[in-house]
Amino acid sequence: MPSRFSTWLFRIATNAALMHRRARARRPAESLEACLPRFDGDGRHAAEPADLLAASRADELLDRKLLAEKARAGLERLPDIYRDAFVLRDLEELPTAEVADLLGIDAAAVRQRVHRARLMLRGYLGELMGVKP
């Protein structure tokens, strides 16, 4: 069996499981709203460049198993509509137009939802690295 196929199958199963979490009756108490970027009164980033960059090094500096657990936990904390769009667009890497068809929304709405998910998850990764959004 080609390893590419098994990798693909594992990813599909993981992502399908993530999307079906929405059927659960109870939602996690804490969302990722607090992980959105912050700005000062002039609309400038409140954080320093080093802190703004920290999320991009999460996979270099965090233990792989810990990051895997935290990544799944972070995805579960996304609002359903953002998670579904993120899973399809950024984890499954489907084209925006295809995600729009699957979700029954227009492409602009897909971009908006994926963008919000990325912002939240980026802040969440930064938080794992010990920095404020």
Binding site: T7, F10, R11, T14, N15, L18, A55, S56, A58, D59, R64, L67, A68, K70, A71, R72, G74, L75, F86, D90, L91, E93, L121, L125
Partner: peptide, 8 residues
């Protein structure tokens, strides 16, 4: 990062 982390 999320793609790599959730794949495993």
């Amino acid at each position: 990062i999320l793609r790599a982390a959730t794949a495993a």
